[in-house]
Design a protein around this nucleic acid. Structure first.
Length: 371
DNA sequence: AACATCAGCAACCGCACGAGT
DNA sequence: TACTCGTGCGGTTGCTGATGT
């Protein structure tokens, strides 16, 4: 049974509120208090949906709202809170008296996300920040896409220190654009973090730059992209390279697996990749068993089918442990969007080398992992 | 001056959740 | 236990003014 609409929409006014409507709503709420939003329009004589009234009151008419621009201090608070809370705008707003979640959300999407995207993406960006950037709304994405249309400089990318939710399979048009393939410089060149912003300072902190000469950090921080020295071995994707980098930067290593899970996996006769011995390898938890090669990140396992170095799919522990091989193809768990055709990793012309394509794939995976 | 594009923001939509019945 | 209702939240849309060409 479908749920009844929150209000009878026929005959109700929509769009911008007029001063008269504001006045009616204000007087009514001041006289009767907040709440009972559904019945409010009828009682107050407004031709508006109750939800619309509530929104108008909360975001605009409340007397305790702070007007004016977001201050630098507030911006810093937003950045800090967003790094730990993610897109929980109402929680963030709770720390900023007089500011609404909608206001903060808009400010983030229109100001902060753009600031963050202005960072050259081959530098490490704190995970939550980058992840949030990828999650930002259509407008920002559209604007950035337009903005980048004629530019070689691509925005986005990076990784997060908030709990990283397992992403649903992104649509190619939405998410492939945010993969490394888009933002990576064509020449994989090392780039420079812009100076002089609170956000940039936060980035430095996140890089663990304490005690290090800023200019050194700024100019020598390991670039998170495939370079000549990050090559593939024997023609295969060096996932271990990626994982080493991830371990070094976001500390994935320590939380990779509980001892219990390792035991469970050992009991499944996993062989070490390099030695052929049972159990996970010393470097992260890259193992090979009869289902292929796989790595673990938290409860999620990145797996490749036997004999196919490039087809890396995500599988949850639950599925892995119960032998969920048949579920690897679940749409929501797959990474295949990263390289389903050339559109996801940039147009690869016939003239591109196989190594270039591998680098692009490597980078695409890397950026995805970091997010 | 006219048009196109961009940026900011208010408002809407759909979903989730808790309380009440 | 199942259902409805009220509310809150996050994502998305679209309007409008500013800016660029």
């Amino acid at each position: 049974m479908g749920r009844a609409p929150c209000c009878e929409k026929v005959g109700l006014k929509r769009g911008r509120w007029t001063a008269e409507e504001d006045e009616i709503l204000r007087k009514y709420v001041e006289a009767n208090g907040e709440g009972s939003w559904r019945s409010l329009p009828k009682n107050a004589g407004l031709l508006r949906c109750g939800k619309s009234c509530r929104l108008r009151w909360i975001n605009y008419l409340r007397s305790d709202l702070k007007r004016g621009n977001i201050s630098a201090q507030e911006e810093e608070i937003i950045i800090n809170l967003h790094a730990s809370l993610g897109n929980r705008w109402s929680l963030i707003a709770g720390h900023l008296p007089g500011r609404t979640d909608n206001e903060i959300k808009n400010y983030w999407n229109s100001h902060l996300s753009r600031k963050i995207q202005s960072f050259r993406p081959t530098k490490f960006i704190p995970p939550a920040v980058a992840a949030a950037v990828r999650r930002t709304g259509r407008r920002t994405a559209r604007s950035v896409a337009k903005k980048n249309k004629n530019s070689e400089l691509k925005g986005g990318g990076g990784a997060a220190n908030t709990p990283v939710p397992m992403p649903t399979t992104p649509t190619p048009e939405k998410e492939a654009l945010s993969s490394t393939a888009e933002w990576q410089d064509k020449d994989n060149s090392c780039n420079v973090i812009p100076e002089s912003s609170p956000l940039e300072e936060r980035l430095m902190e996140s890089l663990g730059a304490a005690g290090t000469e800023e200019s050194e950090i700024r100019n020598t921080t390991p670039v998170f992209s495939v370079t000549e020295e990050m090559e593939m071995e024997n023609g295969d994707l060096c996932l271990d390279d990626i994982m080493e980098d991830l371990n070094g930067i976001v500390g994935l290593d320590e939380e990779r697996e509980s001892p219990g899970k390792i035991e469970e996996r050992e009991s499944e006769s996993c062989r070490n990749v390099d030695s052929g011995e049972k159990g996970s390898s010393g470097n992260g938890n890259h193992v090979v068993d009869d289902r292929g090669s796989w790595k673990s990140i938290g409860e999620w396992n990145l797996m490749s089918s036997p004999g196919n170095s490039w087809e890396w799919d995500w599988c949850h522990d639950d599925d892995t442990l119960r032998g969920g091989n048949e579920e690897w193809g679940q749409e929501e768990n797959t990474l295949s969007w990263l390289w389903d055709g050339d559109t996801a990793t940039g147009d690869c012309t016939d003239g591109d080398s196989e190594m270039d394509r591998r680098r692009e794939k490597h980078n695409a995976m890397l950026s995805w992992l970091m997010s």
